[in-house]
Design a protein around this nucleic acid. Sequence first.
DNA 1: GTGCTTGCAAACGTTTTGCAGACTC
DNA 2: GAGTCTGCAAAACGTTTGCAAGCAC
Lengths: 153, 153
Amino acid sequence: MGKTLSPHHAELADVATVDDALALVRARGGRATPSRRILLEVLFEAPRRHMTAEELAQAVRVRAPDVHLSTIYRNLEELERLGVVVHTHLGHSASAYQLASSAHGHFLCEECGKTIEVPDALFNELTRSATAEFGFSVNPHHFAILGRCADCS
Amino acid sequence: MGKTLSPHHAELADVATVDDALALVRARGGRATPSRRILLEVLFEAPRRHMTAEELAQAVRVRAPDVHLSTIYRNLEELERLGVVVHTHLGHSASAYQLASSAHGHFLCEECGKTIEVPDALFNELTRSATAEFGFSVNPHHFAILGRCADCS
DNA sequence: GTGCTTGCAAACGTTTTGCAGACTC
DNA sequence: GAGTCTGCAAAACGTTTGCAAGCAC
């Protein structure tokens, strides 16, 4: 595939409102378009909810029916580059997008598909030894940890 | 998507040779076909090497030029169900297949794409607290852990 | 001969891209 | 007006599936 693994996002931006985010967009020469504003509104309305690009597109279309899925993808990519948005891979299906400020780790059950949100503290020891032994700094948010949940064990 | 997240593989099978694996296949009512034997030979020749389905297909075709990629996928799926083979997701690209007996965890650099093989011991603490706090039993092999390697930090 | 396996082609779901027109600033 | 952004269509990617012919047992 040879493509970049993730849009190497900036430091987590200090973005508390839709307008903060649009200001960031403008600061790098971008424009504050309706589709961008509405996408951000949707993200800020349920900041802890994971949504796929398709789900975001449907939510955006309630207010602007003609916004195309490819526009959603392009805007998410841009917002991710700016550090406003983050995506997580929950297993084999579509990526889940979220505001960067509410990012967290995930356990995903291989059996039933249930996802469990995990406090970052659980990764402290792994993060510490990864750095100590490999000089590797772990990002526990980007891919879910797979396994079996209590019900399926 | 709604499909099974992973072919819920049997316990790791005690399979030390190609013929052991083919015996397992037969025990399930399957047949020992040339494409299956050659695929297993390729896997046993470099047991620690990760290979994509496409790479395996190319290697198999050296000995049997007409083996189709879909046959590779079907046979890998079957061998995974039998506990002989395991696959890992290394980032956004194609899955990496391996003999189950040489499975291990991975760190993958989001910046440069380098993968680091990780001893399972590094996951001990995460595994322990995941069980204690969530009743979740971690499988550290199925998805790589992302982050930044020493060179890219 | 039974029925598992194969090659092929075509579909799949997610994501990316090329383009001409539309819009923001 | 310059340059960014959009909708659309089409492609890309890895993977799966339906089918009729082929092979293992």
